[in-house]
Each structure stands twice: as structure tokens, then as C-alpha cells.
Simulated scan of single mutants.
Amino acid sequence: MPKLLFDPMKHPDWIPPQTAEWHANLASETGRYKYPWNSVFDEPRAEVIFADKIAAYLKENVRVLDVGCGHGEFTKTFAHKAKEVMGIDINEEYIASAIEETGESVTFFVVDADKRLPFPDDSFDVVYTKKGPWLFHKGIEEGHRVIKPGGIVLGLYHCGTDGGLRNLFPGLYYPFPDSYLEDIKAKFERQLSESNLEKIELQIYEEIEYLSRPEDVLIKKCFGQKETLKKIVWQECLKQVEEIFLQYTTPRGLMIVNYHALMIGRAR
């Protein structure tokens, strides 16, 4: 068992990922929600699978809503594949990046998805989110209000990374419990069943990724954190991470496994 590494999550400057503060820090630095580490993937990637699932429901007369669109790169994938595609996000800097080079069939708006949406009833044929807010939790009406009866709802959520990463770098990462995948599937089964949607599909995908350099282990861990904390983590961890990385890397890089949950439902 390797020696415990420095745990950045215990540092007072650590920002819990996916919080408003975390997104604000990331947006202020780059204006984009985009992974900065170097890696390669075995195909198909989870996001490619998700994009194909969405595309299967698109036609010329379909209107689409991307909830939590970030800087809009994924949203623009569907330009000219539907009548209209709209992306919404609460972060103004993400949206400022998104509206650069926007095509005629894609528009972006700063919108708080936790409040009433600025769209009429029955506005969209397809509503999806990629790691963003899920508008169909029990007791939340806005998703059901803006989607047409029979409309399609899709969600893709990153459920963590393992594949040895959490055992190879203890302290920096923490191992999953043995029941992790079963617990994750049960969580999303419950979320889908409580959404008052007709279930079409629920899948947990394993995505194989190869980190290119020892630094990418730290970049992945510190994604969205402040530069001051990143410097501390590099000083405390890089040497030991390099030793472990070189011991276990493959010709393609250090293999890890990302887990993603895909949900598809139909509005009643």
C-alpha cells in the first residue's frame, strides 16, 4: 500500500466540486467547463453515446432545450439537426463563451434552472442535461411544464472515476465502497421513477480513459480549484505521483475507468 498522499479536500481553500462557488471560480479562469488534462479514450466515449441518443430523437420540426449547457460546445453539436436548440446556464461567463460563433439554430440564455423558466408551456420536444440540473425531480413542475406531452427527457451524469486510481493514490483519492455501482444504479432508478416519466432506458456506462502524464492525475483532482491550492498540491504530491504513475502506466497512459449514468424518459 503506497504512503498516504496529501489530501487537498482537507485544505481550507478546497471548493466542493459542482457548487456555485466552484463553477464561478472555473468560469472566471477559463470561461469554459472543459476538462484540462491530457488523455485518450477507448471508444465509444460516454458523451458520444449520449449525443447519439439525443440525435436519434431530432427532426427538422423538433425544439430542444439543453439545461446547464456550460460554454455550449456540446449544445452546438445539434445545430441544424433540429428546428431550434436552446442552451441555458446560470453562469454568465459560460454563456458569454457560448454565444461566440453561435449559429442561427442555436441560442443561449442566462437562466436559473431552480426558478421558473422563461418559456411557455409545451415549448420543447426534447429536454436534456449533461451533468446539469435535472428538472424532473419529485415536486418540481417546471420540466413537465415546458416539455410537450410525449416529449423525450435525457440525462447524463458523471458518477466518479476508479479503475485503480483510488487505490493507487490513497489520500489524494478515496476508494469506492464495494456496493458503489449497485448504489449508483439504485439512486438513478429511484430518480427516474420519481420523475413521473415513462422509463425508456437507464444504463451505467464504464468509460476507459488513459491519463497521459503524472501531472494529469493532479490536474484531474484539482479541476476547478484555485491556483493557490493547485500549487500546494503540486508541491506536496507530484514526486510521489510520478513514482506511482511510472510504475503502473501502460503504453497508452495510466488506465482509469469513468462511470456515467444515462437516463431516458418520456413525458406523460
Rank of each mutant, 00 (worst) to 15 (best):
D66T: 07
H260D: 00
V257P: 11
Y248A: 11
D216K: 08
K230D: 05
E47C: 02
S28M: 13
E207H: 13
Q247K: 14
A20N: 15
R166L: 03
P175S: 04
G150L: 00
Y128M: 01
E142F: 01
L117N: 06
H144M: 02
T129W: 00
A98P: 04
V110T: 15
L218F: 05
D178R: 11
H23T: 09
L254F: 08
H144F: 08
F119Q: 02
E236R: 15
H11L: 08
E93A: 13
K81V: 12
V153M: 12
G68S: 04
E141Q: 12
F41S: 09
R32E: 12
Y94N: 13
K53L: 14
F188V: 01
G72I: 11
R190E: 13
F223D: 06
A24V: 05
F78V: 12
G150I: 03
G164W: 00
V85P: 11
K59I: 08
F108C: 12
A20R: 14
I15Y: 08
R213C: 03
K10W: 06
Y248G: 10
G139C: 05
G253Y: 00
K59E: 13
W22L: 09
D114P: 02
K59T: 13
K230E: 14
P44C: 02
I152K: 08
S97E: 06
D66G: 10
A46R: 10
L5D: 02
K199H: 10
G132E: 02
F245R: 07
P16V: 14
D52W: 15
G72P: 10
I264P: 14
K231T: 13
F74M: 11
L211I: 04
D216Y: 06
T228A: 09
L238W: 15
E206C: 10
